[in-house]
Design a protein around this nucleic acid. Structure first.
Length: 307
DNA sequence: AAGTCCTACAACCGCCGTACT
DNA sequence: TAGTACGGCGGTTGTAGGACT
């Protein structure tokens, strides 16, 4: 069997990692002719790749305006804030971070920010406190799993096994929600219903691979006042007007900002003026008819919070 | 030192929306 | 209006390299 990087499709289009030679061909062609039709490009550029692969390689890696390196603290804040209001709209989020690609932001979210939010006690999907939502789900699951099944005296044993399997998948999906990017497996002893029923929040742990059940999850160090933020982003409080919503959102960001600061990977990183600095004004002007974004990101209290 | 596990991220896949015929 | 081509997007996978045992 051929390895993935060498595997060729029937039409001999290469897949897998790009070589420096391929990169050079692609860059040379686009610099001279522009990309034009991506489908036609590979042939014209002398590349044995599909147009889609060329486009992705260019937009995500070779483009001259790509900004490499670690995300700054400010960029993190922007991503978190935009994700709270936009969800997984990576391309839109990327459009507000000059030099960053949607793919890069998506990867950064999945590998860093998701974990960070979980450790803060916030569900990175809903941006709601993880306690109520997930524990209710776990509670329901506990009931599901404790339903009596007696495969040995039931003629529908196969059906029951399928049901168990479905339950396993359900639980796995739930746990994956709590453990992003983990290779998850559920051992058979998980289906000891007593063990399941004994699980509490304090018995679960975030950040481990969950490969060894029972699981230990450490609750957040301190309760985070993030309910208001959740309400703001999801409208559960039924605000009377935008002003209330804006105030609440501001309060949330103060909560986020009060968390321990991230340490830049390189000391000089935080001192480098970024494109963000020069474009942030544009963003806030564009994003907010109200001025709350400016206050949120500049961490200055807006007038309406003055008592 | 060797094997295994884990993390990060580049790249791929499939779906969807839009433009064009 | 239907069909097709194309580009964009988000989810997922594959794999290199570091960490750990």
């Amino acid at each position: 069997m051929m390895s993935g990087s060498l595997m060729l499709e029937e039409n001999s289009v290469k897949k897998g990692p790009w070589t420096p030679e391929e990169d050079r061909k692609l860059v040379d062609y686009i610099e001279k002719h522009g990309h034009g039709s991506w489908r036609a490009l590979p042939k014209l550029a002398g590349l044995n790749r599909c147009g889609k692969s060329c486009r992705l390689r260019w937009t995500n890696y070779l483009r001259p305006d790509i900004k490499r390196g670690n995300f700054s603290e400010q960029e993190e804040q922007i991503i978190i804030s935009l994700h709270a209001s936009l969800g997984n709209k990576w391309s839109i989020i990327a459009s507000h971070l000059p030099g960053r690609t949607d793919n890069e932001i998506k990867n950064f979210w999945n590998t860093h920010l998701k974990k960070k939010l979980l450790q803060m006690g916030i569900d990175p999907v809903t941006h709601m406190p993880i306690t109520d939502h997930h524990l209710n789900t776990l509670s329901n699951l506990q009931h599901l799993l404790s339903l009596p099944i007696s495969p040995w005296d039931n003629p529908l044993r196969l059906h029951n096994e399928a049901t168990q399997l479905a339950k396993a998948h359900l639980l796995q999906n739930l746990l994956q929600l709590l453990t992003p990017h983990s290779s998850l497996s559920i051992s058979n002893n998980l289906f000891n219903t007593q063990q399941i029923s004994d699980l509490t929040y304090n018995d679960l742990s975030i950040g481990s691979s969950f490969q060894n059940i029972p699981i230990n999850i450490e609750p957040p160090q301190e309760p985070l006042p993030c309910e208001n933020y959740m309400a703001a982003t999801h409208g559960v409080l039924g605000f009377e007007n935008d002003s209330d919503r804006v105030k609440t959102f501001y309060n949330m960001n103060q909560s986020l900002n009060s968390l321990p600061n991230l340490v830049p990977a390189s000391p000089e990183c935080s001192n480098i003026p970024t494109a963000i600095d020069s474009n942030w004004e544009d963003l806030v002007d564009e994003e907010a008819s109200n001025s709350y974004w400016k206050h949120v990101m500049n961490q200055t209290p807006p007038p309406w919070t003055a008592s």
